[in-house]
Design a binder for these strands. Structure first.
Lengths: 285, 285
DNA sequence: TGTCGCGGTCCATAATATGGAACTATAATG
DNA sequence: CATTATAGTTCCATATTATGGACCGCGACA
């Protein structure tokens, strides 16, 4: 494998020998990131040859991780991918524990509340809860991924990271961002992140999508690492300076609450019920 | 696929060349089926050599599908597995659309209601909702898989399948079941499934776990295929013949409702919102 | 009718993954 | 302290396994 040019994605011969797994996982990710996608696009996205992609897709279909619509010939994630997700957990039960808080935020604000988790140089939208106000921004969807810098949650995460780390990431992401959001003002991002550091919450004044504003607060795990962020998004008219301040209060409160929940849950390593669980599991095995 | 000996799992050189993906997926599944597992058990479970398993695990860790606890050295599914699951869907939105109905069943019964989806020769527990009655059976957990024949949901699915297919599956599963549930009376299963065909709902009178009874109804997708089942489980004292009859009414009703929901949702291929989604997605790419 | 884009397949070749063995380390057990 | 079990690593000859160029068939378009 080429070790000089880094055109496609992750590579390196890797000490051991397991390249095909990396490729397959990459492919799986590419399929997942689009709701439905054709063979050609996947070959382009992965940089692999058509037969290879097709073979890998067949294998993934065989194990149920991918499904193909027999009419449109489009590929998408299969049921087993869903099931696998049911078996996995977010760290510290981040997702589960946040549910109520996010709902409360949607309730009190009337707008849309989000939960995002950090994944390397991106954030990933895990959950969305809608409030009662009839005009909503539907910009961010569950499953959407945004490079750090783009969006309120992203900026909140960046602001919460050590400054050197944040700067390195921004440097790193700058190309990715120029590709996807050509008319993006990186200077503004630096300012906004700096402000977020002082305020304790980040503001996205419609940068990614005109008219769609949002404020966000980072959430840390019991070890102090930045796990993700919670966000309230609204149309511009409903997020002026005054309301930003108003909403930042419950937002920060819910973030603190979530952090506390995670600390508590972290204390009790295993609930009593798992004893029974264990008994049953043995029976099965 | 191998139709004679099924010793290890899926095998055969497979027409194409993508065996390592099959192996990796298998490994991933084995990791997922246990909450947390060591290297030795995985080598045993997969039938592969230690270096191979370790190499594959490293690759899977690299892509985030597996995580390793640095203290215990145990492996489990990684965050990316979770995220992947968020991107996937159950067929016909089975899981989403069932949520309210399951909650209602838990509410009216006071006991525990389940949703299970069929996966080949097994059912997989997708969702559980608990009622208010203080004594609950915690036998089945989200993520648990049971071979068809074992459990009320399983039997409901079997009863709903064409008889020849059901018989073939039972024949097929019989070894698996003898392994895991040594004191299992297959004769009784046949009887119960036959009864289920007549009644329209299946009863598990504490077969898998003494004292834990349940009734279940199969659910079909808009094409008429059996997708899974919904279940009400309770302790034996709360599921005598009279109450079985009582509870079977709302159970069947919810199943019908769910089927209707899926038919409706199937009609409208794409909601309006996805136009916007598409626009945003383009921006990113 | 020609051509372009797409999904899909073949197969000789080259690259890749494999696992036995031998070894280290650490922790629990008797 | 010896023993056992577990996790993990390295080496390397071997052959299993993946690869992609070339090719086919189809439908859309001009």
């Amino acid at each position: 494998m080429g070790n000089i040019s880094q055109i496609t994605s992750r590579q390196l011969p890797e000490h051991g020998g397991a390249q095909s797994i990396l490729r397959a996982a990459n492919l799986l990710r590419e399929v997942g990131l689009r709701r439905s996608v054709g063979l050609a696009e996947l070959t382009a996205a992965t940089g692999l040859s058509k037969p290879t992609v097709r073979r890998m897709l067949l294998a993934l279909i065989n194990v149920g991780l991918v499904a193909q619509n027999p009419e449109t010939k489009q590929y998408k994630l299969g049921v087993d991918a869903y099931l696998l997700g049911q078996l996995a957990e977010t760290p510290y039960n981040f997702h589960e524990l946040s549910r109520d808080g996010i709902a409360r935020l949607a309730e009190v604000s009337g707008d849309t509340a989000y939960l995002s988790i950090r994944q390397g140089d991106s954030t990933f939208c895990l959950h969305r809860e809608e409030g009662k106000y009839p005009i909503r921004t539907h910009v961010l969807h569950i499953g959407d991924r945004q490079p750090l810098s783009v969006g309120a949650a992203s900026m909140a995460v960046l602001a919460a990271l050590p400054k050197v780390e944040a700067d390195a990431i921004m440097e790193n992401n700058i190309d990715k961002i120029r590709d996807s959001y050509p008319d993006f003002d990186m200077e503004k991002i630096y300012t906004l992140v700096a402000e977020a550091r002082i305020q304790g919450w980040a503001l996205n004044p419609g940068l990614a999508f005109a008219g769609s504003w949002a404020i966000a607060v980072a959430v840390r795990d019991p070890e102090g690492q930045v796990l993700g962020a919670i966000t309230i998004a609204a149309i511009e008219a409903r997020l002026d300076a005054k309301r930003q301040l108003e909403l930042s209060v419950p937002l920060v409160k819910e973030a603190k609450r979530l952090e506390k929940l995670m600390r508590q849950a972290h204390g009790e390593s295993r609930p009593v019920a798992s004893l029974l669980t264990h008994e049953v599991r043995n029976r099965k095995r």
